[in-house]
Write a protein that binds this DNA or RNA. Structure first.
Length: 388
DNA sequence: TATGCGTGGGG
DNA sequence: TCCCCAAGCAT
């Protein structure tokens, strides 16, 4: 980390330069964007792909949904989910009228499930109060799940308001343009000031989209394509030849690895047992086969027996391993060992970690929203049953 | 200020 | 294979 005094001097110098250089930077950015072709979100979501003029107002609801889906998620990944959502919940009222299960089911596979819960909660509250979705940044920022960047993205995309964003693309662009000597991981006040100076108070619809396109297509994380960049000449990282070393990376904490034992319990009819996770926290509200962490000294069979006892009050006999695979979350790595089981004693009931349980026909499992790792287990189970 | 929160694509 | 990381936010 840099000495505090040094940072302050650096910030003052950069701000002064940016005030001076902003008009030319914006002009070359928008020029590049116009020549290059517009790839921004509103041009993908509007009927017929028509292009909005500067004074056009676009509907806030679909943009709100899209921008929340796009938090920490790339456009190409989110787009199919957005289309599914759009056909299922085309307006605030239909979303408010849906059940939590339907909403999670539509979101299944996209991750960060609290986003879906909050979208649903906001829709429910607004419709109950008879109020529309806010369209200004301040109003949007009051909603749960909406921070400054998402609020600005919605307001600027829908209404061309003068609200810059500061997402990962913009942080990386600024880090290179200014040869930023510290990790720009968080949206700091300094970085906000920088992007405000750059925008200069004009409508931000095209500006925000152009910045994100430049970051995604040219000023890429691994291999920046500087020869195509409209900011190549003013870019300090490029002039110093250090564009590959920027942005400065933040040291990451080591990621723990955990072994997890999972039991797929079949009853005498052939139904299987699933449990629904608590509504909040990791994978909240999703359904999965019972299981949990392997404790020191346990065999995997021990783990499955103990977890089934603790979670659903069943005593089971552990059969053969159905499959074993790795799954990585952002802050944890898991290895799942999945075993077929049958009940030897007890009656299934929700005890810990579950708000409810259900015995389900294997071919009905897809009606229950479940995390990606569990979806792999379901597939393996169905292949196993088809083969026997 | 640091950490929890998912998943899939790309080097 | 392994690691990074992506249109962030809440606590």
């Amino acid at each position: 980390m840099l000495p505090k005094q040094w940072s302050k001097v650096f910030a003052q110098q950069q701000k002064a330069w940016l005030r001076h250089a902003a008009p030319e930077l914006v002009s070359s950015l928008l020029g590049w964007w116009t020549r290059h072709g517009r790839h921004g979100l509103p041009w993908r979501l509007l009927p017929g792909g028509r292009q909005p003029g500067p004074d056009d107002l676009l509907p806030a609801y679909p943009i709100w949904v899209a921008e929340v889906m796009l938090q920490q998620t790339q456009l190409t990944v989110a787009l199919p989910f957005w289309h599914r959502w759009w056909s299922r919940f085309p307006d605030l009222e239909s979303l408010a009228a849906a059940s939590r299960q339907d909403v999670l089911h539509c979101w299944q596979g996209l991750g960060y499930y609290a986003r879906a819960r909050r979208l649903h909660g906001v829709a429910t509250d607004l419709v109950a109060a008879g109020r529309p979705l806010p369209t200004d940044r301040a109003g949007l920022e009051q909603l749960p799940g909406i921070g400054r960047t998402t609020a600005a993205a919605i307001a600027a995309t829908a209404g061309n308001s003068p609200d810059p964003i500061l997402d990962g693309n913009v942080r990386r662009l600024l880090a290179r343009l200014l040869a930023f000597p510290a990790p720009p991981r968080q949206a700091t006040p300094l970085l906000w000031t920088m992007v405000e100076l750059l925008l200069g108070g004009r409508g931000a619809r095209d500006f925000n989209q152009a910045l994100m396109d430049l970051g995604a297509l040219v000023c890429r994380s691994h291999t920046p394509l500087c020869h195509r960049c409209p900011w190549r000449l003013p870019c300090r990282a490029y002039s110093q030849g250090i564009q590959h070393q920027l942005p400065v990376r933040q040291a990451l904490a080591p990621i723990p690895h955990v072994m997890v034992g999972v039991g797929i319990v079949l009853d005498h009819q052939g139904k299987v047992l699933i449990g629904q996770r608590q509504p909040d926290g990791l994978l909240g509200g999703l359904w999965e086969f019972p299981g949990g962490k392997q404790e020191p000294g346990e065999t995997m069979a021990d783990t499955v027996v103990r977890e089934l006892q603790e979670e659903v009050g069943l005593t089971v006999a552990v059969g053969p391993e159905l499959l074993c695979f790795d799954h990585a979350y952002t802050h944890r790595r898991l290895t799942f060992a999945v075993h077929l089981c049958h009940v030897t004693a007890g009656e299934a009931r929700p005890v810990a970690n579950n708000q409810q349980i259900a015995w389900v026909w294997p071919h009905d499992l897809h009606h229950y929203p479940s995390p990606a790792a569990n979806a792999r287990m379901i597939q393996a189970l169905q292949e196993h049953l088809a083969g026997t």
